[in-house]
């Protein structure tokens, strides 16, 4: 398949352009996404290309944005809502959890909500306590939502196209530090990556590292160092999709390596990595040579000072330490 080199940002943008060209019911709405070209420039150029009303600058009112998108989706439109950061989606939790996620069930299938809520989630660079949340684990707790968090440009492209064509509400988490990451992206408007399929991004035999979004890159760095420094061959599983979760790929890797460490940027306590670890414990207990390791963000609000911020976000050293703890 022919491919093109793109940044993660360009891949997200291209997926939106393709889907808007394909289906006139797809439209974008969000704060500063049009005339201002988007805070992270993900929607750059789209206002000029598609004009109002398909690229709609909204007031800074997340509950009404998501509520309006939900109502519009119930009668056939397919809104893509940009959250300037996923931290702001906290304002819209009532609309997302109490409304969007409930429509299909409460109507016994008579209505559905094909809406995508996308935007950057996680810590960027000194954005401090109110703008650095990892929300994907919160949303993956909610039946009725689908939640994905791609780590590479090709996945961002293929999974956003899948999200737009999905008839259910999808939370699509990008990571602010990944926007500039480059990768080869298939030059194919029908390149769709189904949800619920994890991807083994590095083969190994000694231990399984399980992560999503930016932490996949941290795990790859740790795996490379483990191989170079001590010959440990770590396998890295990119979960990609939290809900639905591909436990089969995770389990088969763990059954091969007999050890696992789950890595996530969200607060360590009660985060989605704990869910993955619990499932491995329930279903792969006899295959394990050591307790499942967990690496998560520090259980503190994100501090401003760079040195403290970096202390909070898991890095390759933290992953390697957790690997060592399993006895490798």
């Amino acid at each position: 398949m022919a491919t093109k080199e793109m940044t993660y940002r360009e891949a997200v943008r291209q997926a939106m352009v393709d889907e808007m060209e394909r289906d006139p019911n797809v439209f974008l709405m969000g704060e500063d996404i049009g005339r201002y070209q988007g805070t992270f420039r993900v929607t750059a150029g789209l206002f000029n290309q598609f004009k109002q009303v398909r690229v709609l600058d909204t007031p800074i009112t997340e509950p009404a944005i998501v509520g309006l998108a939900t109502g519009a989706a119930m009668v056939g439109l397919r809104p893509i809502v940009e959250m300037m950061t996923m931290s702001f989606s906290i304002l819209a939790l009532d609309q997302i959890i109490n409304h969007s996620a409930k429509v299909h069930y409460m109507t016994a299938g008579a209505a559905c909500v094909p809406i995508v809520i996308r935007g950057p989630g996680g810590a960027a660079n000194q954005l401090s306590a109110q703008h650095s949340h990892s929300m994907e684990g919160w949303y993956a707790h909610v039946p009725g939502l689908k939640v994905v968090a791609p780590a590479f440009p090709a996945d961002a492209y293929g999974m956003l196209k899948t999200a737009v064509r999905d008839d259910n509400p999808v939370i699509f988490t990008e990571h602010p530090t990944l926007y500039g990451v480059k990768g080869q992206v298939p030059d194919d408007k029908e390149f769709l990556i189904p949800f619920g399929k994890a991807n083994i991004v590095r083969q190994g035999t000694d231990i399984t590292l399980i992560a999503y979004s930016k932490m996949v890159h941290v795990c790859l760095e740790a795996a490379e160092r483990l191989a170079n420094e001590s010959g440990v061959r770590a396998e890295v599983v990119d979960v990609r999709s939290l809900l639905p979760l591909d436990v089969a790929t995770i389990y088969s890797s763990v059954r091969k390596t007999h050890r696992a460490v789950v890595v996530y940027e969200d607060w360590r306590s009660g985060g989605f990595g704990a869910e993955i670890a619990a499932r491995i414990g329930e279903d792969c207990f006899d295959d394990l040579d050591a307790p499942v390791g967990r690496v998560g963000g520090l259980n503190v609000p994100m501090p401003y000072a760079r040195v403290l911020e970096l202390q909070c976000i898991p890095n390759a050293d933290d992953v390697i330490a957790a690997v060592r703890k399993t006895g490798v």
Partner: peptide
């Protein structure tokens, strides 16, 4: 289109129906 239990919560959904039309 319902039928909603959170006081005020459905109001933007109604605006969304109007937006779609």
């Amino acid at each position: 289109f319902g039928g909603w239990g959170i006081v005020g919560g459905h109001i933007p959904l109604g605006a969304g129906l109007a937006f779609a039309s």
